[in-house]
Design a protein around this nucleic acid. Sequence first.
DNA 1: CTGCGAGTCAAAC
DNA 2: GTTTGACTCGCAG
Length: 149
Amino acid sequence: MLEVVSVRWIKFVNVVLKDEIVVRVTFSDNPFYENVQSHTAKSLKSDLERYFRGERVDFGSYDVGLSELSNFVKVVLDEVRGIPYGTTVTYKEIAERLKTSPRAVGQALKKNPAPVIIPCHRVVAKGSLGGFSSGVEIKRELLKLEGVI
DNA sequence: CTGCGAGTCAAAC
DNA sequence: GTTTGACTCGCAG
């Protein structure tokens, strides 16, 4: 069954769940039509509201649907999920941990279907912010929210 | 097989 | 300061 959580922030943050698994996260100017039923969706909505209010929230307990992705991308995203709130890591560090190149890491992060839930915004370039699939402004605001900037 | 990045480093204007 | 080239590696064409 399909559910949608839409939360107001600098933009609307929309999370689509299928059978209580996060399928994707998007940012939009107008809210998505919500459909919140399961306990998971309710809990997620409340967690998101607290997170965007500036509270320290961990989304590690939510499942994200990664089955469509290549194995390499899964490994990278999995590594990224381990980055704690309020801290950042460079593409290079991730690359070294996984024995690959920083560029490959960037390519993998671009395919992240669920920003915020999988905190790809905590991966930055050495000396600058790096990129972000939903716009670098969003990335900057997220880091500001977590007190990194 | 070729070319392109959400990168990095060093060398050179 | 900025730009340029070599290196890198998984993926799309």
